[in-house]
Each structure stands twice: as structure tokens, then as C-alpha cells.
Design a protein around this nucleic acid. Structure first.
Lengths: 129, 129
DNA sequence: TCAATGCATGAGCACATACGCATACATAAC
DNA sequence: GTTATGTATGCGTATGTGCTCATGCATTGA
């Protein structure tokens, strides 16, 4: 009969051994934080649509602005975030900046998402033209 | 020489065809929104640590509270979100609620994350004790 | 019945964030 | 040089979010 720990939850006694075994199996805080931040970057619909578009083709900011129906400011700010997390790269050509995916590991996820989330009615198949 | 579209970005003319081809390949807004929301749920370090812990063992709220060093309220609120998105399930046993992963498709991602993000110094291997 | 315990929920607050506006910067055209 | 265009960046604001505190609910045990 172990003495109750100072806390209130009696389960600490019941599950104490399990917790002690689990704790060292969890990644350290920084690793989880980094992974969570990466997920959070993907957790915005506008950014996700940007990445989906860039998974299909290199595009300039103007293209993204029009394709996604957002303002140029919004596009530029989201691209800044995607750059900061190393998800996109860009090259400048004159006044224009052409962005493309930097992380090829995203390609699989994005193409899977395109298929699961549904590329509009493209599955239509054989049109007469 | 096509007439300039009403907008200001000349690239619309240059890349117009490309954009027209790309648009139908992108998932509809709802699909992307749903995917983004799912990413956003994973985009919180506390929730991600919860899922990592639950990927190793079924745990009650009290266990999670202690294991992650958070308050019971915080744990409960995060679990509510994870429930709402169908990521965890739970069973009640007396006063306690035992949570476990509901989405087995997360298991692969989480175990991969545990290894990449580093399960503390478990890789230590043979300790003398 | 009453108190204790485990969990859930609502209110309030501090902070983050996504957006629009204005503007700055860089390049191109004149 | 000036002007126009494509992009980037401060700033303010509205909204979202994660936390704490207080409280409610359900179950257990006396």
C-alpha cells in the first residue's frame, strides 16, 4: 500500500508504473514543438491551397493571387511563412518571383490530398472534345 | 495580341492558360478546408503530445494530465477537440474516462514522429543496471 | 444523505494570427 | 530621370485559440 502522492488523483498510484514507462518513449518537447509548428503551417486553408497549386506547377505570386482569389498581400504574407518553414523556394525573374515546392516530401501528401479531397469534377473522364 | 484583362497583372495574360488548366485540378474549397482543420488540430504541441502518448497506451485524463504536466482543464478541453475531429475515442469506467486513438491511420505518422523527433535518450541502449 | 473524486464546461483574459490598407522596394519601360 | 508594375513589409483590426478559474455533473464511498 504505497502512500498517496501529494496530488489528488488516486490514479497516480494505479497508473504510476505505466506513466513511468511511457514518459521516456515520448519525444522531447522541442521535437514535438517543431512537428506541431509544421502541422500548423499546413493548418490554414489558404496556405494548403497554395501548396496544392505549387505541387502542380511553379507559379508567380500573381498567379497564386488570381488562382486562389486572394489579395496580393495575403499571398505574399503566406508565402513568407511557407518560406520560413522551408516548404517553398523561389527564384526571381525580373520583377516576378516564381515559387515552387521546396520539400519533395510534401508531394506525396499533397497529391494524395488532391485525390481524396477531390479535384473538382475532373473525375468526369471522357469529354467529347 | 490578346487584350489585357481588366486586372493589373500582365502575367494573367502570360499564364492565363496555365491557370485555367490548374484550377480544375485543385480540390474544392470544402475538401481543403477539412484537411486544413485536421492539420490545425495536429498543430498544437499539447494535442500532439497527447496523441503521441495515446499512440502508446490507453490513458485516463488524469494520466495525461500528469504525463504532460498540464492542468486537468487543459487536458479535458484538448480531448474535446480531439473527440470532435474523431481522432480519439474513450470509454467511461466509473468516474474515469479512458482515452485511446480512434484513427488508426494516425498510428503510422505518430510512431514515425516518435522516432524522428526522438524518444528522449531511449536509444541509449544497454545500461549497466 | 453527504463528502470526495474524476471529468466536463462556461467565462474571462492574454496572446497569436489572418486579413486589408498603405507604403516601401526592385525592376522594367518610357 | 519618371512612371508603371510585381512583390514585400509595417501597421491596425477582427477573429481565433489556449490557458486559468470557477463551477457543474456523475460516480464512489461513508
Amino acid at each position: 500500500m504505497p502512500p498517496r502522492e501529494e496530488g489528488t488523483c488516486e490514479a497516480r498510484v494505479v497508473h504510476g508504473a505505466k506513466l513511468a514507462a511511457l514518459a521516456p518513449l515520448l519525444p522531447n518537447a522541442e521535437g514535438v514543438q517543431a512537428a506541431a509548428e509544421r502541422f500548423r503551417v499546413l493548418g490554414d486553408a489558404t496556405r494548403l491551397r497554395m501548396l496544392l497549386a505549387l505541387s502542380l506547377s511553379e507559379l508567380c505570386v500573381c498567379d497564386l493571387t488570381e488562382l486562389l482569389g486572394i489579395t496580393q498581400t495575403a499571398a505574399s504574407q503566406h508565402l513568407k511563412i511557407l518560406r520560413a518553414y522551408g516548404l517553398v523556394r523561389y527564384r526571381k525573374e525580373g520583377r516576378m518571383a516564381f515559387y515552387r515546392l521546396a520539400d519533395s516530401s510534401l508531394l506525396g501528401m499533397l497529391s494524395g490530398l488532391r485525390q481524396r479531397a477531390g479535384g473538382r469534377e475532373v473525375a468526369n473522364g471522357g469529354q467529347s472534345g
